[in-house]
Nucleic acid binder design. Structure first.
Lengths: 406, 406
DNA sequence: CACTATTGTTACGCGAGCAAACAAATCCCT
DNA sequence: AGGGATTTGTTTGCTCGCGTAACAATAGTG
């Protein structure tokens, strides 16, 4: 039951039913391809005649294509339908603290080309560099199809309406209108989003095909910080001012170590990669000294995981501690949002065998019901690709989203 | 941007546009009454002819009524439209630990009759008692209109689809199907909901008329426990298994006092009325001893508030402590959900002048942005009526909700 | 009293769902 | 090999309801 917002509603027009049914049909093909018109008619409880008409329209605009006919026990053989992903190109950009990644891929998320360069902090200089690279990529691989847009993810808050980067502390950006600058530069539609939210979107749209619908879940990204993307009712949770989902800054202990945010004992101060490294090095976490300490040691989180896997006791203890606090943070998420699944991304998920049982144990102790305690925890398969897949989703997903009505 | 759930979607039919526009129009009247057809036509950007047709339909089924014509600077005088609330009766029931309240009211939430009796723990015996009382109420006041349904709120988890009470620890109910039992008994549609969620719904639907739309907010109820109702995108947050929104059991300190839930240092163990009373009595909170301690003292939270207002230092200190922890809990809500407003209900809100500045201070220290720190905190005006208004909303709101499409 | 402004109603065209008939393709049985 | 059965996909008329425009009703103005 949803309340109609009388300040921003979309009324229905003569063509509304068609738009709605078109998108439903498109999504049914996406999740059940290959599928025939007759099958669609049964699933939608709609006349076959209408399916024909809708499919014609979708083939016309390049959303679907017709595959081969297929054997059937008897009667006329059905003609299978597929969502067209090949030839629909997307430029995906992942701007990170040290390096920026640019990928040319298609709607399915498969890569055609990938390049990387050192992140330029000044936004306009970065836009200029990106303009060159995007042009070159499209000139080189342009024959693979037509580029439908450009998706960019940043480590920071993004205004969901205008696309402005409100605050990205790691890049030193505040209130940067990168959308207009980029789209003017490359002449393509541009979408910008916060990285963990984009990862959550990727999971929702490119996630397990056919497998259980994922419309209420949380994506937790562990890197230098701890960020989350929350999906409720198939929609991203943004809150009033695009600052929702900061579970990384829920305090686990009032007298814990200080955190970047100014608080004490935040999840992030216990469980970020920086915190794990500092713990391994035998220090207390402090936002002022952490990065210099870690840089001086020359270690990365991957090294700690490797050490732990080769049996190094100190590394194992450091990661186990991280898992303990992460479990407490996840328990908070479970008790407050009750998601159907939590996905953990970031390099720490490479040590899944070590951290999963510990997190499970803490969650079991703190969850309010048995069902909640059994909330599935899933490790992101390819953490390095997650952000780029998210960027791809920013361009692709709107083509499949439900039309906004009422 | 919302993803279409291909397992449970509603496709558009020939009459879908009308249903959508009907509900939009109805809600516009609800928020701007008195309003003329011509005004509606302008607000909806729709032809006046269609407004006439839609309004005719809504008057026919009793949703709207036509008031008097009104003066206008020149031209034909407009005829004002109103939502019909009088004569649309609702039975609202609030089942609490000690007493049960039964109210006969109308769609606007105004009471016609109110009675109360000692709560009967056995669900079926309670249903029998309610059947008698509902029949008597309707027989006595039946001439005031027709009863459109029965709303019931309970202190516990409710399955949103079936209406089963999954778990209400204060009543000792587990998996009780009170909906079918009650609707069979009284022959009216019955809606059951968790109390804080119902309060949140009341705030959303019966809240400030014309004033800013409230579609992302949190209702926090402080009584024997601390419960929350969370509204996101105009919809209640339920989570996977109807267990979402348990901010009362987010630990504020890992080594705090034990809580009913089995954890330690939960918000509820610090800030519930029981916790405040135990603190005033000079004890550490424990779920095993708290209720007996308080009952032995004969004190209620209202007494403590009265004492504090008359200057009693110990009472003031007890409430201030409660406010401190409540502030920490609200800061967690703000950082994770970023609501546009938080409403605090329960008797503690009577001590608003004492608790508000303390909560504000804690929130200011912990919120991640200045805007978040300024999140409005609002005290529920009439805490005693909130639950019954919530029960009324359960019956009334579905008549105004957005049709489910796609 | 004609002119203008505004509200509310009525009439007709057209997009799109809906149902049913029709064409196409394949298997099965005689 | 040929007719019937079965299933898929297309075409055709019908109806609901939006969209536009003309029309009637009501009131003020010069």
């Amino acid at each position: 039951m949803r309340k109609i917002n009388t300040r921003s509603f979309v009324r229905a027009t003569r063509s509304t039913p068609r738009e709605v049914n078109r998108q439903i049909l498109l999504n049914l093909v996406r999740e059940h391809e290959p599928i025939s018109r007759a099958d669609l008619s049964r699933r939608m409880e709609i006349a076959r005649g209408m399916v024909t008409s809708l499919v014609d329209e979708l083939i016309e605009d390049g959303s679907l294509y017709e595959g081969a006919t297929v054997d059937s026990p008897r009667g006329r053989r059905p003609q299978m339908l597929f969502v067209r992903t090949r030839g629909r190109l997307v430029i995906s950009i992942d701007v990170r603290f040290s390096r920026t990644y640019v990928m040319l891929g298609d709607f399915s998320g498969t890569a055609i080309a990938l390049e990387t360069f050192e992140t330029i902090e000044d936004p306009m200089a970065l836009v200029a560099e990106l303009k060159l690279r995007v042009r070159r990529l499209l000139a080189t691989h342009g024959d693979a199809g037509t580029c439908e847009g450009l998706g960019l993810v940043v480590p920071g808050m993004v205004d969901s309406v205008t696309g402005r980067v409100l605050n990205a502390p790691h890049l030193g950006w505040r209130n940067v209108d990168i959308v207009d600058a980029l789209s003017d530069a490359v002449g393509l539609p541009v979408f910008v989003e916060n990285a963990p939210i984009a990862c959550a979107l990727a999971l929702m749209w490119l996630g397990q095909r056919g497998g259980g619908e994922l419309t209420d879940f949380v994506y937790v990204n562990v890197s230098d910080g701890v960020g989350t993307g929350v999906v409720v009712n198939g929609q991203v949770l943004r809150g009033m001012r695009n600052t929702a989902g900061e579970f990384g800054h829920v305090p686990l202990s009032a007298d814990g170590p200080p955190c970047h945010c100014g608080g004490r004992g935040c999840l992030e101060a216990y469980s970020s990669d920086l915190a794990t490294l500092v713990r391994y090095l035998g220090h207390e976490f402090s936002p002022l000294t952490a990065r210099t300490l870690v840089q001086a040691s020359g270690l990365t989180i991957a090294d700690i995981i490797a050490l732990a896997e080769s049996g190094n006791e100190r590394a194992i203890r450091a990661i186990e501690e991280t898992a303990k606090y992460l479990g407490a943070g996840l328990a908070n998420i479970i008790n407050t949002l009750s998601p159907s699944q939590i996905c953990i991304g970031g390099e720490i998920s490479e040590a899944w065998g070590l951290i999963e049982p510990i997190m499970r144990g803490i969650i079991a102790a703190r969850a309010l019901t048995d069902i909640a305690a059994a909330t599935p925890l899933v490790a992101e398969k390819a953490p390095s690709q997650a952000r780029l897949r998210g960027a791809t989703t920013l361009v692709a997903a709107p083509r499949f989203a439900a039309p906004k009505i009422a």
